[in-house]
Design a protein around this nucleic acid. Structure first.
Lengths: 361, 361
DNA sequence: TAAAATTGCGCAATCGTTTACGCATAAATG
DNA sequence: CATTTATGCGTAAACGATTGCGCAATTTTA
C-alpha cells in the first residue's frame, strides 16, 4: 500500500566547501579584537562605538557569518521560540489561530514550534516536556478535551515562563487566556433567529462538561427568556459535531408533535447535517426551518442555501494570544489576563425567511 | 476596533520556589560520580552498567531533572527540530501536510517549527536564515510562487542539512522532493469524465508558468488524445483559483456556439464557481454538465451535488516528505530522491450523469 | 596463565554566545 | 583643576550538555 509511483535517484553534487562555519571569534580575530566586542556590536549594545560596529558588521558579512541562536539561547537561558500545542494542527480553526500567532510574534523575532495533542492528555504532557526541554520562551495552548489535570501546565508557570490558554481554557490554573464570548455567540444567534420570525427554536448543544458549551447553552437560555419564548426540554439536545449526528437528531426533532421552526447549533457540522436532512426531506430552508451554525467554517459559505454561522475570530484570537503572551514575557505584569473576544454572527441565507434582501425585521 | 469585550486581571500566585534547575552535574554530585557518567547513563550508552544507569535514572527523577536539549544541540551541532516553510499555514492542504510531517517525525523525537512565506521570496529567505540560525536539523519546504532564485536553499544544502521540497518543487536545485503526479491527476479526471459519457470537456488551467499546472494540462491533453476527442482552443482557459473567476469563465463558456458538457478544473474553487453559475442558470449538474475539481477540499463533499475532485494526498505527502527527510538525515544516501505520489480521484455526484448508483460505463 | 579484549567510568575540552567586572581614556562637572 | 561620569573595549567565567581519550579492573581468548 505504499503510495509511490516511482522514485528517481539523482546523483547529488558532492558538497566540498566544508567552510568551517564562522563564529564571532573569527570575526574578532580578523579585526584584531575580541569576541565580546563583536557580540556587543552585533547586538546593538550602546557601549560600542559606531565605527567599531560598522567594521564588525562589514566583516561579519564578508565572512558570511551566521549567528548560532542556540548558543545564545543557552547562555541567556531561553530561546526565541514559542511552543504551541493544539489538539489537531489541520483543523481550520486551529491552523488559523496558529497563523495569527505566527504573524504576530514574528514581528518580535520569535518563531513557533507546533505540537499536536490529538486530544490526549498523555500527548499533551509529553509535548510540554519536549517544549520545556527545548527551552521555549513559553507556551500557548488549547488544551485537549481529555485534560483534567494541570500539573504539567503548572510546571510551566513555576518556571516563570509565560503560559497562555486559548479557546479551550480552564479556571483550574491561574494564567492568562484568550477565548471568545460563547455566551454572546449563542445569545446573538438566537436573537437573530427571533428577529427573523422564528419562535420554536431548538438547540444543538455540545458536551455540557466543557465550559464553552455550557456558556453557549446559557446564551441560548438567556436569549429565549429575553424573547419571552419557552425553552422546551425536547428541543435541547446534545449533538456531537458530526454531519450524520445532525441528520439523525433532526429527523427525530421533526417528527415531534410540534417540531421546531429553527435550529441553533453549537457546530457547523451538525447544523449541516440538519440542513441536509431537511432539504432531502423536502423541508424548505430557511422558509420552513431556519438554521444557524457555530464556527463559520469556510464550507458554510458554499452551501445552498448559504449558512449563517458564528465566527470564532480565530486569527484575531491567535493575534491576541500572541500579544498577551509577549506582554507576559516582557514581564511587565505578572498578572493573569482573561481576554474575551466578541464573536461575530455572519448572517447568510439559512436563517432569513423574512425579507430576503432586507436585513432585519 | 479592538475586539475585546473585557479584561479581567487576576492576581497571580507569587512564584517562589526558584528551585535552581537541576543539571546532570547535580545528579552526578548526589551520586558521587561525574557528569559524563550521568550523561551516558541517560543516553543509553552501552558503556555504562545497568546498575549505574538505574541509580542515575532514579536520582534524575528524584531531583526533577529536565534535560536541556539546547545545550545538547549546541554540543552536537544541530537540534532535533525540523524547519517547515509553507506559503500559508492555515490552508487546509498545507496544514494537513504539516500534520503529516509532525506525526511522522515525532516518532523519532523531532519537533517542527513552522514558518510562513506568504508567497513572498523575501520572507522565504528570511525564514531560511532564521531556521538555520536556530540550528534546525534541516528544512522541509513548499516554495512560494514568487521564488525564482534558489541561493537560500542551496545554502541549506551546502551546510549538509537535509532539504526536502514538497508539492511546489523545482528542478533548479538538486535535492529531494515529494509531490503528486499532477499529470496523472488530470489524466484520470478526464478519463473518468469520458467514461461517464462526457465528450466536450473544457479545462480550467492554472498559471502555466508553474510546473504543476503545466503537468496537469499535459494530463488533460493526453487523456483527450487517448480518447480520440478534439482539444478545442476555446475550451482551455487559465482560471485563477477563485469562485468568482470560475463563475465568470463558465458564463463565457456556456455562451459559446458549442458549449462544453463537462469541466475539468485545476482548482476546487473555480470548479465550485462553475457549479454555482450553472445551477443558478438552470443547468443541471451532472446531467447537462459534468464537473471535476482538484484538491478535494473538504467543502466538496458538502455541496449539492457533491463534487468529484482529485485528492492531493496531503497527509501522505507530509508523511513521505518526513520519511525522505529522516532518511537523508541518517545520511544513508546523499542521493536526491524525487518521489511522486499517486493522486486519488474521489468520485462523487457532480461528474456522473450515467448510471447513478453504478460506477462505470 | 599470559596476552588481548571488554567493561565501566573519570578527565577535560568543546559547542558559540553572553555578560559581570574591571580598567583605561575621554568628557563633563563643580 | 580635581572629581565624577561616561565611553569603549578586553578578560574570563558561565550556560548544560557530549565525547575522545585514557586507565584501571575484569573477562575472554589462545
Amino acid at each position: 500500500m505504499r503510495n509511490v509511483v516511482y522514485f528517481r535517484n539523482v546523483a547529488q553534487t558532492k558538497r566540498t566547501l566544508k567552510g568551517k562555519k564562522t563564529t564571532i571569534h573569527e570575526i574578532a580575530k580578523a579585526l584584531n579584537t575580541t569576541a565580546s566586542t563583536v557580540s556587543r556590536a552585533l547586538n546593538n549594545n550602546p557601549r560600542i562605538s559606531e565605527e567599531t560596529r560598522k567594521k564588525v558588521i562589514k566583516m561579519a558579512r564578508k565572512l558570511g557569518y551566521e549567528p548560532n541562536s542556540m548558543a545564545a539561547s543557552l547562555r541567556r537561558g531561553h530561546s526565541k521560540i514559542i511552543g504551541i500545542i493544539v489538539p489537531y494542527a489541520d483543523r481550520i480553526f486551529f491552523s488559523s489561530v496558529i497563523r495569527g500567532i505566527e504573524e504576530e510574534v514574528k514581528k518580535s523575532g520569535y518563531n513557533v514550534i507546533i505540537c499536536q495533542s490529538y486530544e490526549k492528555l498523555e500527548n499533551e504532557i509529553e509535548d510540554v516536556n519536549a517544549l520545556m526541554s527545548a527551552q521555549v520562551a513559553g507556551i500557548i495552548i488549547s488544551i485537549s478535551r481529555e485534560t483534567n489535570k494541570f500539573e504539567h501546565l503548572q510546571k510551566v508557570m513555576n518556571k516563570d515562563k509565560p503560559l497562555v490558554l486559548f479557546d479551550r481554557t480552564t479556571e483550574a490554573i491561574n494564567t492568562s487566556s484568550v477565548a471568545i464570548d460563547d455566551f454572546q455567540g449563542a445569545y446573538t444567534s438566537v436573537k437573530h433567529l427571533v428577529e427573523n420570525g422564528y419562535k420554536r427554536i431548538a438547540f444543538f448543544s455540545g458536551n455540557k462538561k466543557v465550559s464553552i458549551f455550557r456558556e453557549r447553552f446559557r446564551g441560548y437560555q438567556a436569549a429565549m427568556r429575553d424573547s419571552n419564548l419557552p425553552i422546551l426540554e425536547e428541543y435541547v439536545i446534545e449533538v456531537p459535531s458530526e454531519v450524520e449526528e445532525g441528520k439523525a437528531v433532526t429527523k427525530k426533532l421533526m417528527s415531534l408533535q410540534s417540531p421546531p421552526d429553527a435550529i441553533c447549533s453549537c457546530s457547523d457540522f451538525s447544523a449541516l447535517g440538519a440542513m441536509k436532512w431537511l432539504t432531502e426531506n423536502n423541508y424548505k430552508v430557511p422558509e420552513e426551518v431556519g438554521i444557524v451554525g457555530f464556527g463559520n467554517d469556510p464550507f458554510t459559505q458554499y452551501l445552498e442555501p448559504t449558512m449563517t454561522s458564528v465566527d470564532q475570530k480565530s486569527k484575531d484570537m491567535g493575534k491576541t494570544a500572541a500579544q498577551v503572551f509577549l506582554e507576559q514575557l516582557e514581564g511587565k505584569n505578572s498578572i493573569a489576563r482573561k481576554v474575551l473576544l466578541n464573536p461575530e454572527l455572519v448572517t447568510r441565507a439559512s436563517s432569513q425567511k423574512l425579507s430576503i434582501g432586507k436585513s432585519e425585521v
